[in-house]
């Protein structure tokens, strides 16, 4: 699920991160309805965070005159999300996957853009850790967040 081919340049790397953010936002729609109370609130907050990354990326890519990939109408789920356990599993995977795209953007960016990509990678890794804690999955962390396995 983590990008297997390295992006060719900064615009490609950020466009790929944008497609990952689209997919994450879509996934949280599926995830949120299977969760209750604090977990549902956390899913809403996570979705809002991905929306704000998406908006920033669209602005950045369009002001740079580059191609802005469009969102898709829907995405294929890796497995059916039918209950709390499968929703939390998907939430962890979505965050790890999105972290991978932001990590792949790091070598292609410098200065403010790189710091922004690192902040996004870190936020994804933190949410993955919190979702593991909610799901009761251990260990709570991975040694190299976003690194292809």
């Amino acid at each position: 699920m983590i990008p297997r081919t390295a992006p060719a340049g900064p615009a490609e790397a950020l466009a790929a991160a944008l497609t990952a953010e689209y997919a994450a936002i879509w996934a949280y729609g599926v995830i949120g309805v299977r969760l209750a109370e604090a977990a549902r609130t956390a899913a809403r907050a996570a979705e809002a965070a991905h929306r704000s990354r998406r908006d920033a990326l669209i602005l950045q890519l369009s002001s740079g005159g580059g191609q802005v990939p469009a969102d898709r109408a829907g995405y294929a789920l890796p497995y059916p999300v039918t209950d709390r356990a499968s929703a939390l599993k998907l939430a962890v995977e979505v965050e790890e996957r999105t972290a991978g795209f932001w990590r792949a953007a790091l070598p292609h960016t410098t200065g403010t853009d790189r710091n922004r990509a690192l902040a996004a990678l870190t936020d994804c890794a933190l949410r993955a850790t919190r979702w593991r804690r909610t799901a009761g999955v251990t260990p709570l962390t991975v040694p190299f967040p976003g690194r292809p396995v």
Binding site: R103, L106, P107, L121, A125, L140, F144, P145, G146, R147
Partner: peptide, 25 residues
Amino acid sequence: CATAPAERAALLGSIAAARATHLEV
């Protein structure tokens, strides 16, 4: 990570993110 050459940026980014998750734990 902020000032690293391209070929080191991804590794340093993963290390920074990992340490942030340790703090969370």
